[in-house]
Design a protein around this nucleic acid. Structure first.
Length: 918
DNA sequence: ATGGGATATGAATCTTTGGCAAGG
DNA sequence: CCCTTGCCTTTGATTCATATCCCA
């Protein structure tokens, strides 16, 4: 309505400005502010209109058409009605905005479901690949190709990452990534084919590397980044339209040999939202039968010419590095990214990489320097002179798509206890775990799930590859579900790697955990960890996190947590130099500790927004109305001048009443931790009630923190009297809220029973129901002293029994009455029917039957009766035999159907009735 | 082009202790 | 006269996640 009025107003305004302006420059005149329903305001610029303006019929703002219904057309003079056409052209931001809708709860659920199914499919796929890597034939084939000197690695006692380099180099030199899979076949067969041709999909090549390492007796896992459909539907649209997505999807298409039911279709049926995921899902799980393969290709084609974005990049086949290098001129972002990669490369593990890179450069001197001379000029501008040409070997780039598969080899010679080392043999990268995230980010993806497969099992090792967990946390499925899914697989995985059990009796060094003060690493000093404040111990965010992650630790003291943290190798420097004796720890458990440690030592994000839902840290501005920092410290760092606090210091406050619901009461003499304004609505009610006698605290709500509460200490029942609240009732939010010595009897109709017995009781209020804009208390049963429980229940049982009996009697009486009424009405109807069906019969004044009908609820209404009377008057004679005839049902004419218990009684006149015997 | 911050927006969440009339 | 039952009708403020705009 608002919109219409506004339009009317504008149209009138237009009119006043004159005819000329309308026809010549409609855009200019209509430019202005349109107010839609829901107060949506849209700026309509001049450019939004064509000079050709059109007024459609039927206003449909939601669909973007502006028009007027016939009845509401503004009074525009005839001269103006002819050629007024308003047409929106282009897609201005205002038009985009109208489609902006937050995902509804149903769609969210659906998207989650698709995400879960996709995860499961990819897990299954990973297990399949893992199994293929164990295939003795494949392993033997690979070994037969390996030069003898590389076989020695299987005899190494202390395996280190460096030792893997020659092997990886050999692999890289001998196996290449091919982007298009030739034909679909079972994975083992395609692996065999890949060995033969020395090239395969990224998945196959990664799998071959795993198989090779395993053949050499190295503990190796197959790693996959599960690039699942997004939990945010729109995000996927972008991904699908991007050429990288197509390539990466192509690269990891499942090789199912037989067509299975199209899973995506199932989702498409559920909702159009889900159909977004259809193609991706189908391709991931390899549901591309020979029959529908062509169809899929077609779909891909349409997606590459995405209508929405109109984005058809020349790097559509960019995965094929060999052929397409020249096609794409690198963007600044790519160049910078590579630069960063190189810097990272030279800064870390330099030794390994330098030699490797040099080797690489010697082998393939043209690979990077000659492929793109333009790029090199750009790069040279950007690079400082320190970075030499030899370092321009950049692994992974946006064009290649994100790294999706690689291997992890357990190197017992690395660190004290050994560790899993990232090995991307296809790209000849050893120990490059810290680079994966950046590579994925450069491909506009996020690293949400990284799963290690081994022994048909799987384990989530995302933490190892993700340095900024807070960026992916919201993109992952609910962790409870995920860990439940993984737990049996994790078991299998740890069994595969668990044979290697270690006994540790080593001094922990400070290196156990990376602790860099002031460098964004959030490892807090012991002083900060343990801070006495109002009798409460401040726990470090690390400890808090452990607390959060482990249910068992929930109720432990900070001291306990610290000792657990030590046990977990969390590397609290307090104990850093002491020698500890760790019980036999499995490799899996050690890795768990490592990942846990990473979780606790995440760097401080640099943007404020990241603190909003950060699991470890917070800044004050993101606190809600009901939150405070207690204690306010320690400050872990600063972000744009805002002090950063550990998340554990955030306390949620509640009103006294709300704490009661949780079985806690606010301690005496505690002043509110925070006072907030009462909402206007409530305020209004209160002021209207109390008039001018509003005291100071009336418009505010006093809030208390958990530290200000103690376990509810209700006055016990004394002398059979139930302690009640100011409303004369007991609020039973939970069993904890019951005064000692009382019981909650949850039965209806207990009040009269208790009253009759003369025992003290109180109605039990169990919650609220929101109705009519007001909260209505809901009562359920009563609260009485425990000693009267049996007496009350006994009396209740007695009363209920009596009530049920009465109820039964009442029901029976009612049933009889209803039967009587039914039969009576039936008879009456029959009688009427007969009398009207035989026109030759003698006339009966219809009035005679009407009193009967009136008694009968089922009989005709008065109007019906009137109609009959009318019929009677018009239709001539009606026999009056019926009136005189009284039906009689002699026994000999009765029949009885034993099955249906129906007795049929017949009168000599032909009338019969059926009686169902009860 | 990109990222961060401010702002707008719409959906979700929280709020929280009836009143009256008819009939038994 | 008292008690029970049924009917009335579904707020509005705040929070939260996200999109968009603007600016550096």
């Amino acid at each position: 309505m608002q919109l219409r009025n506004k339009l009317k107003a504008e149209a009138l305004e237009t009119h006043s400005e004159g005819q000329q302006s309308l026809t010549d420059d409609v855009g200019g005149v209509f430019g202005g502010r349109l107010v839609g329903e829901g107060n949506q305001e849209r700026e309509i610029s001049q450019g939004d209109f064509n000079s050709k303006c059109e007024v459609h019929e039927g206003l449909d703002w939601e669909d973007g058409n502006i028009s007027f219904s016939n009845t509401e057309v503004p009074c525009i003079p005839e001269t103006l009605e002819q050629e007024v056409i308003v047409e929106f052209s282009g897609t201005p931001s205002s038009a985009k905005r109208q489609n902006v809708r937050r995902i509804s709860a149903i769609d969210k659920e659906l998207v989650e479901l698709v995400h879960k199914v996709h995860l499961l499919c990819l897990l299954a796929r990973g297990r399949l690949v893992d199994a293929a890597c164990d295939d003795p034939l494949i392993q033997a084939s690979l070994l037969s190709l390996l030069p003898p000197h590389l076989l020695k690695i299987s005899e190494v006692q202390k395996l280190t990452a460096d030792l893997l380099v020659p092997l990886v180099e050999w692999f890289r030199a001998n196996f290449h990534v091919r982007n298009e899979s030739i034909e679909k076949m079972p994975f083992k067969e395609s692996l065999a084919a890949a060995i033969e041709t020395r090239e395969g999909t990224p998945e196959e090549v990664a799998a071959l590397s795993v198989a090779l390492f395993r053949a050499l007796n190295l503990s190796t896992r197959f790693l996959a980044m599960l690039d699942v459909t997004s939990l945010k539907p729109d995000a996927d649209q972008a991904v699908y339209s991007s050429p990288e997505a197509d390539d990466s999807v192509k690269g990891r298409t499942f090789n199912s040999s037989r067509p299975i039911a199209n899973l995506g279709d199932v989702f498409a049926k559920l909702s159009p939202q889900a159909s977004l995921h259809k193609r991706k899902l189908n391709e991931d799980i390899g549901l591309t039968s020979p029959q529908n393969e062509g169809k899929h290709i077609k779909e891909n084609d349409t997606s590459s010419k995405d209508k929405r974005t109109g984005y058809k990049s020349s790097d559509a086949h960019s995965c094929n590095l060999e052929t397409n290098h020249f096609k794409v001129s690198k963007r600044k972002g790519d160049v910078e990214f590579e630069l960063q990669m190189e810097m990272a490369l030279s800064a870390t593990a330099a030794g390994v990489f330098e030699s490797k890179v040099e080797q690489e450069m010697q082998q393939k001197p043209h690979s990077s320097s000659t492929t793109n001379s333009k790029l090199n000029i750009k790069e040279k501008k950007l690079k400082s002179e320190v970075i030499s040409e030899r370092n321009s070997f950049a692994v992974w780039s946006r064009k290649m798509g994100p790294p999706l598969y690689w291997a992890e080899v357990y190197c017992n010679g690395e660190t004290l206890s050994g560790r899993w080392v990232h090995v991307d043999a296809a790209n000849s990268i050893v120990d490059g775990e810290h680079k994966v995230e950046a590579a994925v980010a450069a491909c506009r993806r996020s690293l949400r799930y990284v799963v290690a497969f081994s022994g048909r099992g799987a384990k989530d090792v995302t933490r190892r590859y993700c340095m900024r967990w807070y960026t992916i946390a919201s993109q992952r499925i609910d962790s409870e579900w995920w860990s439940a899914v993984l737990s049996p697989l994790k078991e299998l995985e740890s069994r595969a790697g668990g044979s290697n059990v270690m006994h540790l009796d080593v001094p922990l060094t400070d290196n156990a955990v990376e602790v860099k003060e002031g460098s964004g690493r959030a490892c807090v000093s012991p002083e900060a960890h343990l801070k006495e404040g109002s009798g409460r111990v401040c726990v470090s965010p690390e400890a808090h996190h452990i607390e959060e992650n482990s249910e068992a630790l929930k109720e432990k003291t900070p001291q306990d947590i610290f000792s657990s943290a030590d046990g977990l190798g969390a590397g609290v420097s307090r104990h850093a130099s002491s020698s500890i004796n760790i019980e036999p720890v499995s490799r899996g458990a050690l890795e768990d500790m490592e990942l846990e440690t990473r979780a606790l030592t995440e760097p401080l994000p640099s943007n404020q927004l990241a603190y909003k839902n950060h699991p470890l840290y917070t800044i004050e501005r993101w606190l809600t109305r009901y939150q405070v920092l207690y204690p306010k410290g320690p400050v872990l760092g600063y972000c744009s001048g805002h002090p950063v606090y550990p998340r554990i210091c955030v306390q949620t406050l509640h009103t006294k009443e709300r704490w009661l619901c949780e079985g806690l009461q606010v301690k005496e003499n505690e002043s509110p931790a925070k006072v907030v304004k009462r909402s206007r609505k409530v305020n209004k009610v209160h002021t209207s009630e109390h008039g001018s006698t509003v005291d100071g605290g009336e418009g505010t709500i006093a809030l208390y923190g958990k530290w200000q509460t103690e376990v509810l200490n209700l006055p016990p029942a004394v002398d059979g009297m139930v302690p009640k609240n100011e409303r004369g009732q007991v609020d039973v939010w939970s069993e904890k809220c019951l005064p000692p010595g009382t019981v909650h009897l949850r039965f209806p109709r207990l009040v009269p029973v208790a009253k009759r017995l003369g025992v003290d009781f109180a109605p039990a209020m169990v919650g609220f129901e929101f109705r009519n804009g007001c909260s209505i208390p809901v009562y359920e049963g009563i609260v009485a002293c425990a000693e009267f429980k049996d007496a009350i229940l006994e009396a209740y049982a007695e009363v209920e029994e009596r009530r049920e009996e009465e109820e039964k009697k009442r029901m029976e009486a009612q049933a009889l009455t209803r039967w009587y009424q039914l039969l009576f009405s039936f008879i009456t109807r029959q009688r009427l029917k007969r009398s009207y069906e035989t026109p030759s019969s003698s006339q009966v004044p219809i009035n005679a039957t009407i009193p009967n009908v009136g008694d009968d609820p089922c009989a005709s209404s008065q109007s019906e009766a009137n109609a009959m009377q009318h019929h009677n008057q018009r239709g001539g004679q009606i026999a009056n035999d019926l009136e005189e005839h009284e039906h009689s049902f002699p026994l000999e004419n009765e029949s009885y159907d034993g099955e249906s218990c129906v007795r049929t009684k017949r009168c000599a006149c032909g009338f019969s009735i059926q009686v169902e015997e009860l």
